[in-house]
Nucleic acid binder design. Sequence first.
DNA 1: GTCTATATCGGGATAGAC
DNA 2: GTCTATCCCGATATAGAC
Lengths: 207, 207
Amino acid sequence: MNERDKGTEEKIVQAARAVFLRKGYNGARMQEIADEAGTNKALLHYYFRSKDRLFEVIFLQSFSQFFPKVSTILTGNEPLPVKVVSFVEHYIDLLRENPYLPQFILSEVSRDPESVPRLFQAAGLNPEWFMGQLANIGQGVFPPGSDVRHFILNMLSMCIFPFAARPLLTRVMFSGDDAAYENFLDQRKREVSSACLQLLSPTAGQR
Amino acid sequence: MNERDKGTEEKIVQAARAVFLRKGYNGARMQEIADEAGTNKALLHYYFRSKDRLFEVIFLQSFSQFFPKVSTILTGNEPLPVKVVSFVEHYIDLLRENPYLPQFILSEVSRDPESVPRLFQAAGLNPEWFMGQLANIGQGVFPPGSDVRHFILNMLSMCIFPFAARPLLTRVMFSGDDAAYENFLDQRKREVSSACLQLLSPTAGQR
DNA sequence: GTCTATATCGGGATAGAC
DNA sequence: GTCTATCCCGATATAGAC
């Protein structure tokens, strides 16, 4: 794999990413990837041995993209609300630039759940450490009996679901007007931030 | 299609539902459905002409299941918070009984977004009317400038996402301990209800 | 209605020329 | 490294006996 390969190999990777993200592993065709890359099927097999291996490259890339480098956010000194708002805004920006990412990750993980530990390993991420950090941060903010995970999950749900369900929501909530939904998503950085802050603020005996 | 058919035809439908829901259209195999139904491929084609038509039956069923008959909730006389809690509890119950439903609907709609209007039609549902009702209910509860849809979407996100992302979340948040995640989901009826109520209660100038 | 055997085709993978 | 032609298997769909 010398330098001169990089041109076509990179073209193939980009094409594969575009097709796999839209169609998923089962829906994607090697022929379509070749077309999109402006070459032929044989070259795909020359650079990557099989459809499986090519997919693995894309899946791993996407996976580590989907789990952002939150280390900096977690280990920062800012108070929790600031961290939350910062996370929400950055993450929704990321998803707006990669609209197919959520549905892709969800589908493919559900197709092959066993791959998750390996992917974390390969991406250099450690879920246990991650959850541990969250538990620490939650100290004193959440009532002792409560589970920080519910708050985290609420936050992630509100960020990710609108993108994963986009084709459906566009038609249900905006009669198929895609531009209107795009505009709606634009407001969500502020909406979700606001909602998360509200969930953080202690209220009288809600649970 | 007389009465005596019903035995095997129904078996096939059940088998098809099980396989399609788990594997999706592209991942499902007619052979696997036949096996699960305890018959052979030829019979599938005898009752339903093609894989497409068989899938269509399952998709339509699942779609109308996913969009619950909320008419009764919407048109009831109870105050909004009561309606919200009632919806959340019933809906999460539904998803716990049909864990594959969210991922299935999301995947298949994303595979063929154009099918959505036809599905609504066939299921006897009307999105426009639905959104209109929501707007009415929102009168006076939400500030004039705000969009009720954000609240609705937040609620749906917190209900649905934990199921759509289950294979991922089980491994990230609970190290793959499936029973622990099941237990966690059990708490969410109360958690999500509580969160929605908190989002409804007016707080000083959050937006 | 139910089954076995088979036709037909699409798509992943390889051979081999250049 | 790049291309064309081809192999081969798996999956949908059908024919036809019972």
